[in-house]
C-alpha cells in the first residue's frame, strides 16, 4: 500500500478531495467571523454544482459558467441574509430550508433544462481545465506534484491567501470581525452590523459556489443528484475546528482531504470498509485533539512566565 501512497496520483487525489471542502470552509469562516453560522453551505454547493453545468453549457466557457455561478451563489447568500437579517428567521432553520429546497429544486431545474432527473449528462457543459504550468512542469518530481491539477484547485489555494488578507488586512475585514466579536460595540462606532453581515453572507455564497462549480466541473464532469453529499457540513466542522480562520480551516480541510484519499486507497486492502469509512472523521478528531492540547500547553507556558 505504501507504494500507492507516495505517488503523484495520490497527491492529486488529496487535492481533488480537498478543493470543494476548502472553498466551503473559507465560506464558513467568513460567515462565522461576521457572527452567523452558514449552515446552508450544503444546499448552496448543490445549487452551484447544477448552475455550473447549466451556465458553462450556455456560455460554452468554463470561466463564463464560473462567473455566473459565483454571482448566483452570492444571490443565494443574499437570500439567506434577507431571511436571517430582515425577516429575523432563525439562521439554522433558514439554512435547513435552503438545503431542503436544493435537493428537490436542483432535480426540478435539471428536468427543465435537460429532461433528465438523475444526471445532467445531456447538457454539454464545459468543465474547468487542468493546468500545466510552463517550465515548472519540466522540473522532475516537483513538476509532477505541482502541475496538472484543476484550475479550481489552484484558485482554492489562492483563495486561502486572499481571504486571509481580506479578513485581517482590510478595513472591511476588520469590520466583519468586529461585528462578529461584538455587534453592539461595532454599532456604537457607527458600523451597520446588518450591512456587514449581508456582505459576509454574500461573500460566503460566492466562495461556496466556487466549490460547487468544481464538484460538477472538475471533480466530475456532470451534475448528479445530491452530489454535494455532506461536503457543506464537513466544511462547517472544518472551519470551526480551524477556529474560523482561513489558515486554520485550510489545514483542517487538507487533513480531511488526506484522510479521504487515504481511505479510498485503503479500500484496496482487506481492512473492513466500515473501519475505513471512519478514517477521515477519526483523523480530524485526533488532529483537533493534538491542536487543542498544544494550545493548552502554550497557554500554560505563557501563564507560567
Amino acid at each position: 500500500m505504501l507504494s500507492t501512497i507516495f505517488t503523484a496520483d495520490f497527491f492529486a487525489a488529496i487535492l481533488r478531495a480537498t478543493t470543494p471542502i476548502l472553498f466551503a470552509t473559507l465560506a464558513a469562516a467568513i460567515a462565522a467571523k461576521s457572527g452567523i453560522i452558514n449552515m446552508a453551505l450544503e444546499g448552496m454547493m448543490l445549487f452551484a454544482a447544477l448552475f455550473g453545468v447549466i451556465f458553462s453549457s450556455l456560455t460554452q466557457s468554463w470561466a463564463g459558467g464560473l462567473l455566473i455561478t459565483m454571482a448566483l451563489g452570492g444571490l443565494l447568500g443574499l437570500i439567506l441574509a434577507f431571511f436571517v437579517l430582515n425577516l429575523k428567521t432563525d439562521e439554522i432553520l433558514a439554512a435547513i430550508a435552503i438545503n431542503l429546497v436544493a435537493t428537490g429544486g436542483t432535480v426540478l431545474l435539471m428536468l427543465a433544462f435537460s429532461g433528465d432527473r438523475g444526471t445532467s449528462i445531456s447538457i454539454q457543459s464545459v468543465p474547468a481545465p487542468k493546468l500545466d504550468i510552463p517550465f515548472l512542469q519540466d522540473v522532475p518530481v516537483l513538476g509532477s506534484l505541482l502541475c496538472g491539477h484543476n484550475v479550481m484547485t489552484y484558485l482554492a489555494l489562492i483563495a486561502v491567501v486572499v481571504v486571509h488578507i481580506f479578513l485581517y488586512k482590510t478595513p472591511l475585514g476588520l469590520k466583519i470581525r468586529a461585528v462578529g466579536e461584538n455587534k453592539n460595540a461595532a454599532e456604537s462606532v457607527g458600523i451597520s452590523s446588518r450591512r456587514i453581515q449581508y456582505i459576509a453572507l454574500i461573500l460566503s455564497g460566492i466562495l461556496v459556489a466556487m466549490g460547487g462549480f468544481f464538484m460538477s466541473g472538475g471533480y466530475m464532469s456532470m451534475f448528479t443528484k445530491d452530489m454535494a453529499a455532506g461536503r457543506g457540513y464537513i466544511a462547517l466542522a472544518a472551519s470551526s475546528m480551524g477556529a474560523n480562520t482561513p489558515i486554520g480551516g485550510f489545514l483542517v480541510a487538507v487533513l480531511f482531504g488526506i484522510a479521504q484519499a487515504f481511505a479510498n486507497v485503503m479500500q484496496l486492502s482487506t481492512i473492513p470498509y466500515e473501519l475505513i469509512q471512519m478514517v477521515p472523521y477519526l483523523t480530524t478528531l485526533i488532529g483537533l485533539g493534538i491542536y487543542s492540547y498544544s494550545r493548552m500547553k502554550k497557554r500554560q507556558k505563557a501563564g507560567g512566565k
Binding site: A17, T224, D226
Partner: peptide, 8 residues
C-alpha cells in the same frame, strides 16, 4: 449519491 467519491 456521492459520485465524486465514487470517482476517487
Amino acid at each position: 449519491v456521492n459520485s465524486a467519491t465514487g470517482k476517487d
